[in-house]
């Protein structure tokens, strides 16, 4: 049941941060996901070790976002396994060895280690920046309001928005909203951060400020899985790049390999389109 089944990338080792032995932060095993007759993920396996920064690239419709959403169980996989810090996400194995869906309460316990940043920011409009950030730490983690506020201010400082703490999202630019959303995710003190095209909804001049924050996080050793179209970020900040095509991982390796000398023809075609 456990253990990486069918790794599609023999020989590829993550670079940059040394990966200590022990449980991977995220392990995905033979993940399938269908929406009705449409099979979006067709058996995806990979591991994310502590401190890994992995970018997922691929054409739209290749299953990148679905893969990310399966990891924190916003989508329920059709089959396959997701493990976070050695704990199964959204399933348990019954006495007969079959996979069973897990209760929401248990899902939420595992989810506390996985935070997500969305393309559309998804800040709650009826709360100020600070209120957005302290909400889950207080009500899910059970922090005291004072403690949560302290944590929130620390992350607002990190994303350089302390002076905007009492503004409502509608008064913030897209880039500022996304940075607040990153602070909100960090305030849960997750073991891994998932980024779902975090800069795709931004005006070009606002992309830089968000990427700067993400690069800073990467340098500080945060474990990150980033779906992105920003090839610059994928090249500079990530240890590994996954190229997804038609629901399968076609390339998995360090940026130098995947971006410069891809093995698959489809990856070459994709890169020639996005790198012009």
């Amino acid at each position: 049941m456990r253990g990486p089944a069918r790794l599609i990338y023999p020989g590829s080792v993550s670079q940059g941060h040394p990966s200590p032995d022990g449980e991977p932060v995220v392990r995905v095993v033979d993940l399938h996901k269908s929406f009705g007759p449409l099979e979006v993920l067709k058996g995806v396996s990979f591991e994310l070790r502590r401190g890994d920064v992995v970018s997922i690239i691929g054409a739209s419709g290749s299953g990148k976002s679905t893969l990310l959403r399966c990891i924190n169980h916003l989508e329920t996989p059709t089959s396959g396994e997701v493990w976070v810090m050695g704990r199964p996400m959204g399933f348990r194995v019954d006495a007969a060895g079959r996979q069973r869906p897990e209760s929401m309460a248990q899902v939420n316990r595992v989810r506390m280690d996985v935070a997500m940043v969305f393309q559309q920011f998804n800040l709650w409009p009826h709360m100020t920046a600070l209120e957005n950030i302290v909400e889950a730490p207080i009500r899910v983690r059970g922090m005291s309001p004072a403690e949560a506020r302290e944590v929130a201010m620390r992350y607002l400082t990190k994303v350089d928005l302390v002076e905007k703490r009492d503004e409502y999202p509608a008064r913030l630019s897209g880039g500022q909203q996304q940075r607040v959303a990153i602070a909100r995710a960090l305030a849960m003190q997750p073991k891994v951060m998932l980024f779902d095209e975090p800069t795709s909804a931004l005006d070009p001049e606002l992309i830089g400020e968000v990427l700067d924050v993400m690069e800073k996080l990467a340098r500080e050793g945060m474990t990150m899985l980033v779906v992105t179209h920003e090839m610059g970020f994928a090249r500079e900040a990530s240890d590994r790049i996954l190229f997804l095509h038609n629901g399968l991982i076609e390339e998995d390796g360090p940026p130098g390999d995947v971006l410069i000398q891809p093995k698959s023809e489809r990856c070459r075609q994709f890169l020639s389109k996005v790198l012009h």
Binding site: M104, R111, M116, F118, Q120, W124, P125, A136, V140
Partner: peptide, 24 residues
């Protein structure tokens, strides 16, 4: 997306309804 943001932060259904959905 507002609901998914709450879910992704491990907020339960009840909490999401009370704190995120109903106020809006």
């Amino acid at each position: 997306g507002h609901v998914e943001a709450a879910r992704s932060l491990a907020m339960s259904r009840g909490l999401t309804l009370r704190r995120i959905i109903l106020p809006q």
